[in-house]
Simulated scan of single mutants.
Amino acid sequence: MVRAFLLAALLLSLAACERDGGREPFAESRTPASLAPRFYPPEGWAWGYIGVGDQPLQRYGVASTRRVPVATVVIVPGYGETAELWFETASDLIERGCTVWILDRAGQGGSGRYVLPRDLGFIPSFDPEVAALRELVRVVVRPTPETPLILLTQADGAVVALSAVRSGLRTDGVIASSPQIAEPPEKALLGPVKRASKPPPGWKPWSRERADDRAAGRTHDAWRGQVGHAWMTANPDLRLAGPSLGWTKAFETASRVLESGARQVRAPVLMLNPDRGADAFCRQLADCTATTLSSARSALHIEADRWRRPWLDAVEAFIDARRSDGATATISAVPARS
């Protein structure tokens, strides 16, 4: 077995701009001046790193409610998303009484990179980040029986979270937002192995002219659609463009392994707007519910309130259903936002 080690610290003095383009992990991002306060880091937010074996370190962040938490939520973003894109959702969940952790994906966000250029998405396998998620929960989060542990995932992050559960991670439930499971390719995507960490034909590096999430069709919301682009503009080390052939192959491989072990996923699962592969996988699980938010785009956590509010309500209801005290969280009034 791969021996794991933990490096967890508050990294308050990193000079990210000096390492632009390097492989090192990155914390303490600069908040873009263009963002409204609701997109700022939650109060008390702190960063740390988790490492498994000789793999690049992955960045995580955490903040908690001031009262006894009703649940612990670990967020696993989708491809191309940084932890910063989830700050608004983290604040909402903290306001509802949760402790919230966000684990940047391997080779993405503030995590260390496997290859250069830094904005090329590459990972040789999903196994290291599955292992990192398990170690984060076991060594750092250390959930207690009194407080339910919920994994909240986005897009292909569902493969990471569900693979961790399949391989033995104990959790009280998984919420998969717009989950994606790779379709089998019509033909092999990789030629020689040396091509795995190279950009595919037509790949373009990240640029300021790159479409934001609204222009890319991930959300209807003009303000939330700018958030990810703003963080990457202000913090070059966070930038990520399209995936390499190797990342795509790793996603396909992890999807096939996950599908073959559906019976080993015993935790309750809620899927919100699953793609075809995820919906079919849900039907194989012992306890899985799939729900559709009609006309919503793929990034429900940054959607317009018309869709995001019922999405957040569904997330909260799932968490409340797993609370041992049977109580419901107190919800503060939240003004309308668009």
Rank of each mutant, 00 (worst) to 15 (best):
E259S: 08
T233Q: 13
S338D: 07
L300M: 09
Y60M: 00
D20W: 04
I150M: 01
S207V: 04
E209I: 03
H229Q: 06
L57S: 03
R208L: 05
Y114S: 10
P32K: 13
A262P: 00
F122A: 12
E186T: 11
H220R: 06
P143D: 03
L7P: 14
G202W: 01
W223V: 09
I319S: 07
L93P: 01
R195W: 08
P310Y: 13
I181D: 11
S13I: 04
A8R: 06
I123N: 11
W206Q: 12
W86H: 09
R23P: 08
M271Y: 01
H229V: 05
L10Q: 15
M232N: 02
W247D: 10
A8D: 07
G202F: 07
L285M: 03
G78Q: 00
W206F: 11
S29Y: 00
A278F: 04
L270Y: 00
I319L: 07
G261Y: 04
A304Q: 12
Q108V: 09
S207A: 05
A216C: 03
Y79E: 11
P192K: 13
R3T: 15
A250T: 04
I75R: 00
R23Q: 11
Y114I: 07
A304N: 12
A304H: 08
E88Q: 13
Q154R: 03
G121K: 07
A241C: 01
D320N: 14
A8I: 09
E95N: 11
V227N: 03
L162Y: 05
D20C: 08
E84S: 08
A182I: 02
I181N: 05
R210F: 07
G202S: 03
Q264C: 14
R208V: 02
L312W: 00
I331D: 14
G44I: 03
L272T: 12
A83E: 01
G21L: 15
F126I: 04
E84Q: 09
R105I: 05
L14V: 13
L162H: 12
G121H: 06
I123G: 14
D320M: 13
